[in-house]
């Protein structure tokens, strides 16, 4: 079993509250540009793009300092104390969901706020849903 955020793009209003909440929790201030997720406008819809907590995580594979690891609940997290700020994980992620924090010279990515993601909590429409996937896939 692993926990991920599922996007119901058809319910997304583009309000960016998910990004504002993410930035608030992760940086202590608000600005959607500082969030660890993004919204993409596609025609008449708005599609949230989030870290998939990949089972085959490129970011984890390329990290030379074993700073990226998987928690028991499937979350892929960065251990800040081990991160050297080399940026290889940022390059490796094919959906651009690992970010470089130039102030702290380290990589940042969604860790599902430890299991209670702020983006899901504040989303007013249910466009973002925390779900559990899998079960017997690894059996």
């Amino acid at each position: 079993m692993r926990t991920v955020i599922h996007c119901n793009f058809d319910l997304c209003t583009g309000c960016s509250i998910c990004q504002m909440a993410c930035a608030q929790i992760k940086t202590g201030g608000t600005n959607p540009r500082l969030a660890l997720l993004r919204l993409e406008k596609q025609g008449l819809i708005c599609r949230p793009v989030l870290c998939a907590q990949c089972r085959n995580a490129f970011c984890m594979q390329v990290c030379p300092s074993e700073a990226i690891c998987r928690e028991d609940d499937g979350r892929v997290v960065i251990r800040e104390e081990k991160c050297t700020g080399c940026g290889l994980c940022v390059e490796a992620c094919q959906v651009d969901m690992v970010f470089f924090d130039s102030d702290n010279k380290s990589a940042r990515k969604c860790d599902l706020c430890g299991g209670d993601p702020a983006c899901v909590k504040y989303c007013p429409t249910g466009a973002l849903e925390k779900i559990k996937l899998g079960g017997d896939a690894d059996a």
């Binding site: 209003t13 309000c15 960016s16 008449l44 007013p124 429409t125």
Partner: peptide, 13 residues
């Protein structure tokens, strides 16, 4: 109408 849209930071849509 097809869907609701919102201003930045607004839950009302």
């Amino acid at each position: 109408w097809l869907r609701s849209d919102a201003c930045l930071g607004c839950p009302v849509r």
